[in-house]
Design a protein around this nucleic acid. Structure first.
Lengths: 131, 131
DNA sequence: CTTGACCTTCCAGTGACTGGAAGGACTATC
DNA sequence: GATAGTCCTTCCAGTCACTGGAAGGTCAAG
């Protein structure tokens, strides 16, 4: 199947799929006319990649997961370890963003937002309002 | 003052400060020997940039904020609008990450994580366990 | 036979830095 | 004055995960 169809089924644009080939994530067969030829199994792997990426795994982590996925003898502990590490990262990121949100929200509620030139947001950013 | 000292005071590495000069964010004077010469006011602006960046404003947003910061006649409404937009973005990102965390956490708790080759995480990623 | 959609490769750009090489400037010590 | 070490300069390249675009080949429909 052509790259366009494969992309539609996997939820990935052709550009991205070609990029995955470039970096050796998934190298398909070729048709006689030189077009890439994706099997159903390839599409399966592409969907796997699409899901893993959207769950925040880096391309290198996806590469690991994909090789574990294809390895019938792998231990699920390996996969769990990768997922657990990622989970901790996500949790940390959420907390960072929450404190960022709190600061921004504080700034916004304390700015009168009219035509006066004094602005608590800029004061805060400039350090006037304490460190 | 030299770039190293300015960087220490502003909490930014010299590389980053030079980069900010490259993109026209903050262009300092030069000393006779060709070294960059940062005034206290420059350091103030650098700190402003450091804070804004760490609050998640893009460099272009920082550029806007910085020009508003230097503009005595600006309206605080402009500043508030930028901050509010950013706040909404941060909130959206938090929610995305939370749902991501829920999926990952579900995967991790359902994977026995031992030496058995079957793994619910990979099954889920491959789409076996429903879309 | 032409149109248009699809495919190919290759090169360049994104954002916001970061690393490193090659070389000049300054300070302290011998 | 020589030397060592730290700081500074510029410039080029790399990061990550794509994305855009140009130039050209292939295929199906009308």
């Amino acid at each position: 199947m052509n790259i366009g169809t494969a992309g539609e089924r996997a939820g990935l644009p052709p550009k991205t799929i070609r990029y995955y080939e470039d970096i050796g994530l998934l190298v398909p067969e070729r048709q006689e006319n030189g077009y890439r030829d994706y099997s159903d199994d390839d599409v399966h792997r592409l969907r796997f990649l699409q899901r893993s990426r959207s769950l925040g795994f880096s391309v290198d982590e996806c590469r690991q997961l994909l090789s574990l996925y294809g390895d019938k003898g792998r231990e699920s502990a390996e996969v769990k370890a990768i997922a657990e590490t990622k989970l901790a990262e996500v949790q940390r990121k959420i907390e960072e963003l929450q404190s960022l949100r709190d600061v921004l929200s504080h700034l916004v509620t304390h700015c009168h937002g009219d035509a006066r030139p004094d602005c608590p947001i800029l004061d805060e950013l400039s350090g006037k309002a304490g460190d």
